[in-house]
Design a protein around this nucleic acid. Structure first.
Lengths: 207, 207
DNA sequence: GTCTATAGGTCGATAGAC
DNA sequence: GTCTATCGACCTATAGAC
C-alpha cells in the first residue's frame, strides 16, 4: 500500500532470513513487472532468487500476496505529486513518458533491495485487476497518490473531483503507452506529447 | 476488428449451424465482458449457449479466437466518433459514463445476435492484453476509432498526435471508471465529470 | 529453516463413437 | 454434425522428511 519502503516491514510475519526474503521480493518485482502476474510462476521467481519454490509461498503466504507487496508505485512518483502544483501537469507527463525506471539512475538495486519499473508495475496491476484484491490495491494507490497528495492543495471548486480526473488523464497516458502500447504514441516526440497533454492536465489542476 | 457487424462474416471457416454459432458468440460476449477472459471457461460459454463444449472450439478454433471475435467495440461508439467535432468532447464523455450498454435501449438482442457492453468489453480487452494478439487487437481498435475516424478531420497542426492523445484521455476515463473502478468517480455527478473532462478533450480536438 | 515430492485442481483441446 | 470421454499440460499450495 505505502510506496515501496526500505523493506523494513518487520511487523509482519517475518519468516525466513532477510537476504532470502529480499532476493525473492527483488526477483518477483522484476518478473511481475516484466511479464505480468499470470505469466510469472512461483518456480520462476524462486529460480531467479536462488531459493526453493516452496519457500516463496512460506515467506509470503501466496503468490498473490507477494504480488501485492511488490507491485507498488514508485516513491519518485509520489514525490512528484507532492511537489509544487505549478507546472505539475508537464512534469507528470514527462515522468510517465521517460522515467520508467525508479530507484536511482542506473545503480544496482535500491536501498530496500527492490527495483521497480513504474510502467511495468502499472501494466501488471491493471492486467491483474480481475482479482478484487488487486483492484482494491489499485484504487487505494490512486487514492493515496492523487486525492491524498494533491486534492487538498487545489484551489477552487470540486477539488476532489478534479484531482481524480487528473488521475484519470494520467492513467490514460500510462495505459495507452504501456498497456495498449500504441505505436503512434511511441513514435511521437516527448516534447509534443508533454506540451499537449501537460496543458490538459494543468487545466484541471488550475481549475 | 471491424465493429460488430451483423454476424455475417461468412467468408470465414463457417462451421456449425448459424443459430448455434450465434448462441455461442452471444454467450461468449456476455460472459467475457462480465468476467473477463481467464475467468470465463469454454464449458461455461457452452453451457450458457446450450451447446457442447467441444463445439465451441470446433466452431472458433480456440478460446482466444472466440474472444477476439466477440470483444469488439460497439458500433454506437464508432458512430459517435464519426459525428461532428463540435461538442464531441462532452458527448464522448457522456457516452463513456452512461451508455455502457449498446444495441438498443433495452431490447433483447441486437440484429446480429450479439449484445455488447462497451465498458465490459474494454475492461476485458485491457485485462487480457498480456496476450500479444489481444494487445494488437486493442491497438488496432484505437487506430480505427480515433486516428481513422477523427484525425483526418482535425484542423491545425499535429492532427494525428492530438487524436491519439484524445484517445488516451478517453482511455483514462474508461480505465478509471470501469477497470480501476475508482469509487470517488462513481460517486461524482455525471454532469460535473462531463463538464471538466469534456472540456479537456475538446481542447485537444480544437487544437 | 530448507527441500522433495506430490496433492489437488483447473483448463483448453482432441480423438473417436454415434 | 454432435456428443462423450479423456488427455495432457499447467499451476499453486501443502505435507512431511531432513
Amino acid at each position: 500500500m505505502s510506496p515501496v519502503g526500505s523493506g523494513e516491514e518487520s511487523g509482519d510475519t517475518a519468516v525466513g532470513p532477510k537476504h532470502h526474503r529480499d532476493a525473492v521480493q527483488q526477483a518477483a518485482a522484476r518478473l511481475f513487472s516484466e511479464k505480468g502476474f499470470t505469466a510469472t510462476g512461483v518456480r520462476e521467481i524462486a529460480g531467479e532468487a536462488g531459493v526453493d519454490p516452496a519457500l516463496v509461498i512460506r515467506y509470503f503466504g501466496s503468490k498473490e500476496k507477494l504480488f501485492l507487496r511488490t507491485m507498488t508505485m514508485s516513491v519518485d512518483f509520489a514525490d512528484l505529486m507532492a511537489g509544487p502544483l505549478d507546472g505539475l501537469g508537464e512534469r507528470a507527463v514527462t515522468f510517465v513518458l521517460g522515467r520508467t525506471r525508479t530507484g536511482g539512475p542506473s545503480g544496482p538495486y535500491g536501498a530496500g533491495g527492490e527495483r521497480s519499473y513504474s510502467a511495468g508495475v502499472f501494466a501488471a496491476l491493471l492486467r491483474a485487476s480481475d482479482r478484487p484484491t488487486v483492484r482494491a490495491h489499485l484504487a487505494e494507490t490512486v487514492e493515496e497518490m492523487f486525492v491524498g497528495l494533491v486534492a487538498g492543495r487545489l484551489d477552487g471548486a470540486d477539488a476532489d473531483l478534479r484531482a481524480r480526473l487528473m488521475a484519470a488523464q494520467l492513467t490514460g497516458l500510462m495505459t495507452s503507452m504501456h498497456v495498449v502500447e500504441d505505436p503512434g504514441l511511441a513514435a511521437a516526440s516527448d516534447g509534443e506529447i508533454t506540451r499537449y497533454y501537460g496543458r490538459s492536465i494543468q487545466l484541471l489542476i488550475d481549475g
